[in-house]
Each structure stands twice: as structure tokens, then as C-alpha cells.
């Protein structure tokens, strides 16, 4: 009853917490040309766990900003303008905070739950795996 597959359909969060589930969802998103949203989601989680005293952390924040937010990437398109401005200002002032990407991650997660996650559960990639 609590097979991995049962967990995958429970929520996006449980799908992404499973190695095979995350891998398969990534394959699906690559095909749909929106894999950046998933990489951004994982980058936000990784960033939150970083040590704020480590100089590497500011560089990672800048790298996330440059790669996903200050571009025409699908992530930037799905974020609210105010969310992008908030992150840009933090980066400019070098004010790094573990929660600085939380709002952006929530917006991306909501949009993944609304569309690609639902599509994934009816996709041939998923059905073949099942």
C-alpha cells in the first residue's frame, strides 16, 4: 500500500523526496523543456542548508540569481516581479539570508503542482514505469 508509486501520487513533495521519482520527473521535464524549474527547486533547498558564514554561500546565491532569475528562463517567467526584485536587492546589498529564495521556491512549486506534476502522472514515461 505504501509503495513508492503510491507516494508519488500523494504529492509533488513526496515524488521529489524519492530518488527514482525525482529522476523520472526530471526526464519528463527535460522533454517538456522546463527542467530548469526542478533544478531551481532543488537549488533553493540546497541553498537553505548552506552555512551563511561560508563565503561560498554568497557566490551560490549569485549563481542561482544569474542562472534562473536574471534571465529569460522559464523560472524567471513564472515568478512575480516583486519576488524577483526582492532577490535582486538582496544580492545587490550582499544581504544573504537562508530564506531569501523561499518565496520564489513556493511560487515555482505551486506552478509545478498545477501543471507539470499533473501531466507527469498521466504521461507515458510514468505509465511505462508503473
Amino acid at each position: 500500500p505504501d509503495s513508492p508509486l503510491a507516494r508519488w501520487t500523494k504529492s509533488l513533495h513526496s515524488l521529489l523526496g524519492d530518488q527514482d521519482g525525482a529522476h523520472l520527473f526530471r526526464t519528463f521535464l527535460e522533454r517538456e523543456k522546463c527542467v530548469d524549474t526542478l533544478d531551481f527547486w532543488f537549488a533553493c533547498n540546497g541553498f537553505r542548508q548552506m552555512d551563511l558564514k561560508d563565503t561560498k554561500t554568497l557566490r551560490v546565491a549569485k549563481a542561482i540569481y544569474k542562472r534562473y532569475i536574471d534571465t529569460s528562463s522559464i523560472v524567471a517567467k513564472q515568478l512575480k516581479p516583486a519576488t524577483k526584485t526582492f532577490i535582486r536587492d538582496n544580492i545587490k546589498k550582499q544581504q544573504i539570508d537562508s530564506a531569501m529564495f523561499d518565496q520564489a521556491q513556493t511560487e515555482i512549486q505551486t506552478s509545478m503542482e498545477e501543471s507539470p506534476y499533473q501531466m507527469f502522472l498521466t504521461s507515458d514515461i510514468y505509465l511505462e514505469y508503473v
Partner: peptide, 20 residues
Amino acid sequence: IDSEDDLLQECISSAMPKKK
């Protein structure tokens, strides 16, 4: 010194689920 891409990749990988 690590490149920006390496740092980003490392950050993403650190958050990926590990095999149980």
C-alpha cells in the same frame, strides 16, 4: 577556485534525494 556552474551543480546535488 570552483566555477559558478560547479558551485550551482554542487548545491543542486546536495539537495537531491539519496538512495534509501
